[in-house]
């Protein structure tokens, strides 16, 4: 049966096609693409690090000691480990468990925050400043940008926790949790590369 609707040319109305099960949310897809571009930023910075390193006769230059591995290794484990409670929380809300959601988020938050706090402590104890030379500049810029990402992740966590406490999230509707957890895993994952490049390989000769 043909219908001429006023806002469209010749059309005929049919039943909608068969649906399939719901995939990921739009927000999740957006976060995946955002992560792709963010990851590229870190790749650019790490490439910068190695480019500068390759063009310098000594590394680190100017008698700077390679960064200590002790404490940062511990806090790296803490940061990367913080993905676990986030996983746990997300799995929890998927089955509607509000308590697990809140507990996991809180634990993840504390672990992330302790990493950030240690980074601040480390900064205040380094014997070089970012204006000294190209090494110090790229060291602070890369770790600083990562720290900024952790900070943003913590802020996101706060918003999601607020939503969790006001019971806005449920087994069917928890897009913000989904999006946040993706982002958080990314921030943790990137640290693995930053840590390897800036801390570990600096001890390789």
């Amino acid at each position: 049966m043909t219908v001429t609707a006023p806002t469209m040319t010749e059309t005929v109305v049919v039943a909608p096609p068969q649906a399939r099960t719901r995939g990921r949310s739009i927000g999740w897809w957006g976060m995946v693409v955002l992560i792709a571009t963010e990851a590229t930023i870190f790749i650019a910075l790490l490439s910068t690090y190695f480019f500068l390193r390759a063009s310098s006769p000594t590394w680190p230059p100017d008698g700077i000691k390679p960064p200590d591995l002790g404490n940062i290794a511990i806090f790296s484990v803490v940061l990367i480990g913080s993905s676990i409670p986030i996983f746990w929380a997300e799995a929890g809300i998927r089955s509607g468990d509000q308590r697990r959601l809140r507990a996991g988020l809180l634990l993840g938050f504390l672990m992330g925050a302790s990493f950030l706090a240690y980074q601040g402590y480390e900064y205040s104890h380094l014997d070089f400043r970012w204006t000294d030379n190209a090494y110090s500049s790229i060291f602070y810029a890369t770790t600083g940008l990562h720290g900024l990402h952790v900070l943003v992740g913590l802020l996101m966590s706060l918003v999601v926790q607020a939503k969790a406490w006001s019971r806005k999230l449920s087994a069917d509707h928890h897009v913000s949790m989904e999006v946040f957890s993706l982002y958080w895993h990314f921030v943790d994952g990137v640290w693995l590369f930053v840590f390897t490049s800036l801390y570990l390989t600096a001890h390789l000769r």
């Binding site: 910068t48 063009s55 100017d62 970012w130 204006t131 500049s137 810029a141």
Partner: peptide, 28 residues
């Protein structure tokens, strides 16, 4: 991201005095 980093590092050099592009201090 590459141009963002290029312009960003340039501005860090210009505003905060970092040394990414200062040939005298290991910059390239």
């Amino acid at each position: 991201p590459a141009v963002t980093v290029a312009a960003g590092l340039l501005e860090l050099d210009r505003i905060f005095g970092t040394a990414f592009f200062a040939p005298g201090a290991g910059g390239s």
